[in-house]
Amino acid sequence: MTKIHVAIAILYKDGKFLCQLRDDIPNIRYPGHWALFGGHIEPGETPEVAVVRELKEEISYAAPSRSISLFCCDVEGDVVRHVFYSQLSADVKDLVLLEGWDMKLLTPDDIRAGSCYSQKAGNIRPLGLPHQRILLNFIDSLATVNMN
């Protein structure tokens, strides 16, 4: 089975996590679900370069590459997610959503619940299961670091 490699970003600010409400179209993975920003790694591109490019393409965010760190690689079936994390240095109101239906800072409670209200969709939308799992693992890792 050929693996699809993607680079995604956990962007956090004030204890919340920036998520994208994916377009509600049937030919994409997790349509109409909250997910992390990111996308396919192009041929010859490193995951680090891909995640910076994707953030610029999807939300016009020029992430300082030195501020982005690798959190983990998450494998689910044919997808390998290279997961990076960084503090979001911009206000959400200053970001421009260029891909997806909505974006929002989700609280840890939203992530644990597995869903969140979208103003643009006008209803509660679920989190993509791998994105929820990755975020919960990240939140747990922060709690472990903060307790030591």
Rank of each mutant, 00 (worst) to 15 (best):
A50Q: 06
W34I: 01
G100P: 00
Y30L: 07
H40Y: 12
D110N: 15
S65L: 14
P64H: 07
G15C: 11
M103W: 06
M103A: 04
S86H: 05
K56T: 03
V49S: 14
V75Y: 11
R29M: 14
H40I: 09
D91S: 12
I111K: 07
D109M: 09
L70I: 04
S65W: 13
L55Y: 06
D94R: 06
K120N: 11
E42L: 15
Q119G: 02
L70A: 10
R112S: 12
G32C: 03
A50I: 02
D78L: 05
L21M: 03
H33Y: 15
L11A: 05
G32A: 06
S67L: 10
D78P: 00
A121H: 00
C73M: 11
L18E: 11
V80T: 11
Y85Q: 12
I41C: 06
Y85L: 06
D78E: 12
R112A: 14
S69P: 01
L55V: 09
D110G: 04
K13I: 01
V92N: 03
V51H: 02
Y12C: 06
R53L: 09
L98N: 15
K13N: 08
D78S: 08
C72V: 01
K93S: 13
Y12Q: 13
I59G: 01
E99M: 10
S86M: 13
